Amino acid sequence: MPIISKYSNQEVEQIIAELLATLKKNNASAELSLMCLGNAASIIIKDNFPKQTREQIAESFSAALKDAAK
Results as ranks from 00 to 15, higher is better:
Met1Tyr: 12
Arg54Leu: 02
Leu37Glu: 01
Gln56Ser: 07
Ser42Trp: 04
Ser62Arg: 05
Ile4Ser: 13
Ala30Arg: 12
Leu37Asn: 06
Tyr7Met: 14
Met35Ser: 13
Met35Thr: 14
Glu18Cys: 04
Phe49Arg: 00
Ser29Ile: 05
Ile15Val: 14
Asn9Pro: 03
Lys24Ser: 13
Ala58Cys: 01
Arg54Asn: 01
Ala17Pro: 01
Gly38Thr: 11
Ser8Gly: 09
Cys36Gly: 15
Ala41Gly: 02
Asn26Cys: 07
Ala40Pro: 00
Ser5Arg: 07
Gln52His: 12
Leu34Trp: 09
Cys36Met: 15
Lys51Ala: 10
Glu31His: 08
Ser60Asp: 09
Tyr7Lys: 15
Leu32Arg: 14
Lys24Asp: 13
Asn39Asp: 11
Ala63Asn: 10
Thr53Met: 07
Ala64Trp: 03
Ser8Leu: 06
Ile4Ala: 14
Tyr7Pro: 01
Gln52Ser: 11
Asn48Asp: 00
Asn26Ile: 05
Ser33Trp: 04
Cys36Ile: 15
Glu55Leu: 02
Met1Ser: 14
Ala69Cys: 04
Thr53Asn: 08
Phe49Trp: 05
Ile15Phe: 11
Ser62Cys: 04
Ile44Ser: 06
Ala63Tyr: 06
Ile57Thr: 02
Asn48Arg: 08
Leu20Arg: 12
Ala69Gln: 08
Glu31Tyr: 06
Met35His: 12
Gln10Asp: 12
Asn27Gln: 12
Gly38Phe: 00
Lys66Ala: 10
Asn26Tyr: 11
Ala63His: 09
Ile16Thr: 08
Ile16Trp: 01
Ser62His: 03
Ser8Phe: 00
Leu19Met: 14
Asn9Arg: 14
Lys51Met: 04
Leu34Met: 14
Met1Asn: 14
Asn26Lys: 15
Ile43Asp: 06
Phe61Ala: 10
Ile3Asn: 10
Met35Arg: 13
Ala64Gln: 07
Glu55Tyr: 01
Ser60Tyr: 04
Gln10Tyr: 08
Leu65Arg: 05
Ala28Met: 13
Leu32Cys: 03
Ile3Gly: 05
Ala17His: 09
Lys66Val: 08
Leu20Pro: 05
Ala64Leu: 08
Phe61Pro: 02
Met35Gly: 08
Pro50Gly: 02
Gln56Tyr: 00
Phe61Val: 11
Gln52Tyr: 08
Ile45Ser: 01
Asn48Cys: 05
Arg54Tyr: 03
Glu55Ala: 09
Glu55Asn: 06
Glu11Pro: 04
Glu59His: 05
Ile16His: 03
Ile16Val: 15
Glu11Trp: 06
Thr53Cys: 01
Cys36Pro: 03
Arg54Trp: 00
Ile15Gly: 03
Ile43Met: 06
Pro2His: 07
Thr53Ile: 10
Ile45Leu: 00
Gly38Met: 04
Ser29Gly: 06
Ala64Phe: 05
Ala40Gln: 11
Ile15Glu: 12
Leu34Pro: 02
Ala63Ile: 07
Leu34Val: 11
Glu59Lys: 15
Asn9Leu: 10
Pro50Ile: 05
Thr53Tyr: 05
Ser42Gly: 15
Ile3Cys: 07
Ser5Gln: 11
Asp47Tyr: 01
Glu18Asn: 10
